[in-house]
Simulated scan of single mutants.
Amino acid sequence: MIWNTSRLLRPSWPSAAKASTYECGIVTVSEAREKFTVRYYLVAVMFLVFDVETVFLMPWAIQMKELAVFGLVEIGIFLFLLLFGYGYIWSKGALTWE
């Protein structure tokens, strides 16, 4: 009952400007619930995986003097696996955007 009363009492001047997008200024060309391909989500997950893995480089850089040769070998293996994974997904075509 209150909703109906307030609807009758409020001023209402609908216009095209009120219905248009205002957040980014880009004219919409399709619906907001557009389906994305799986490739879009794969790129997002790959970004997160490689981004989180590179965060592991910070503790190693801080403790580099205490870890000495062991730390150097350890980070070498880590970077090799990281670059190997990156090369693998690149060879499979996961990074091509079509």
Rank of each mutant, 00 (worst) to 15 (best):
Ala44Glu: 11
Thr96Pro: 01
Ala19Lys: 11
Thr54His: 03
Lys18Gln: 12
Ile89His: 05
Asn4Tyr: 00
Val69Asn: 00
Leu57Asn: 06
Lys18Pro: 00
Ile26Ala: 07
Ala68Glu: 12
Thr96Lys: 13
Val52Phe: 15
Trp3Gln: 08
Val43His: 06
Tyr22Lys: 13
Met58His: 07
Met64Thr: 03
Thr28Asn: 05
Met58Leu: 14
Val69Arg: 03
Phe78Glu: 10
Tyr41Gln: 02
Thr54Glu: 11
Val69Cys: 01
Asn4Gly: 06
Val45Gly: 02
Ser91Ala: 14
Tyr86Gly: 12
Ile2Pro: 04
Lys92Leu: 14
Val43Thr: 07
Gly25Asp: 05
Glu66His: 05
Val55Ser: 12
Thr37Cys: 02
Lys92Arg: 14
Asn4Phe: 02
Ala68Thr: 00
Tyr40Arg: 14
Trp97Gly: 02
Leu57Gln: 04
Pro59Asp: 03
Ile89Asn: 03
Leu95Trp: 07
Tyr86His: 11
Leu57Trp: 12
Lys18Gly: 07
Phe84Pro: 01
Gly85Asp: 14
Leu42Asn: 03
Phe36Gly: 05
Leu95Gly: 01
Val29Phe: 01
Lys35Leu: 01
Lys92Ala: 07
Glu34Ile: 14
Glu74His: 07
Val52Leu: 15
Phe78Tyr: 15
Ala16Gly: 05
Ile89Cys: 05
Ile26Gly: 01
Asp51Tyr: 11
Pro14Glu: 12
